[in-house]
């Protein structure tokens, strides 16, 4: 049966999805974030656990951890940043292409954690702009996923890219810890991430 063009686009709405380009781009960006491997210390173990089969980050689109910063969008700073590592961190961040985001995973990356001394940079936001802070020592995979979902929500609504162009700073959102939810039989509370 030939297509009916007499009513213009109205007759074809079941065959097309329409939207603004900006929305589509943000939707695809938020759900295909590729993290750079920046596991430093204990939080790296929990980050790997989040990528494992039990917690499974790939259902959020980020199964592929790219080793090369040029191919990555997200830097999850997982672990304590020492004085020797700080220039390396900045170099990796600079090598990433825009748009790029930073999740500071764990208290050591967020504020220096329990190591308030000469050797640790007191918060990775002294070196790079941070978008989401995930607390915990280490934050369990659920907290990391909560942080990632929050970030995805921010990307989806376009908040982050806009803010970054305006001030150059990160979104600086702190999420709450969500660990231990799978220890019992209660269903896990998911966050939509949308603000």
């Amino acid at each position: 049966m030939p297509l009916d063009f007499s009513e213009g686009l109205e007759g074809l709405d079941h065959n097309f999805l329409t939207g603004r380009i900006e929305d589509l781009v943000q939707w695809s960006r938020s759900h295909s974030v590729w993290p750079a491997t920046f596991g430093l210390a204990c939080c790296a173990i929990e980050m790997m656990a989040a990528g494992g089969a039990h917690y499974d980050l790939s259902r959020f689109g980020m199964e592929v951890f790219r080793a090369s910063p040029r191919q990555a969008d997200l830097m999850i700073v997982a672990g304590r940043v020492s004085q020797k590592m700080a220039p390396v961190l900045r170099q990796i961040y600079d090598q990433m292409m825009e748009p790029k985001w930073v999740i500071s995973m764990g208290v050591c990356a967020s504020t220096g954690g329990m190591f308030n001394n000469y050797a640790i940079v007191q918060g990775v936001d002294q070196v790079v702009p941070v978008d989401v802070y995930a607390p915990g020592c280490p934050p369990g995979p659920e907290t990391l996923m909560h942080a990632i979902n929050t970030l995805q929500g921010l990307i989806d609504t376009g908040d982050i890219t806009r803010r970054r162009k305006a001030t150059g700073a990160g979104a600086q959102v702190t999420v709450s810890q969500r660990d231990g939810q799978t220890a019992g039989d209660a269903p896990v509370a998911l966050s939509s991430g949308r603000r």
Partner: peptide, 11 residues
């Protein structure tokens, strides 16, 4: 090495 030096012995 030294990229993860945390000063734990001092702490």
């Amino acid at each position: 090495i030294g990229y993860l030096h945390t000063g734990m012995e001092k702490t």
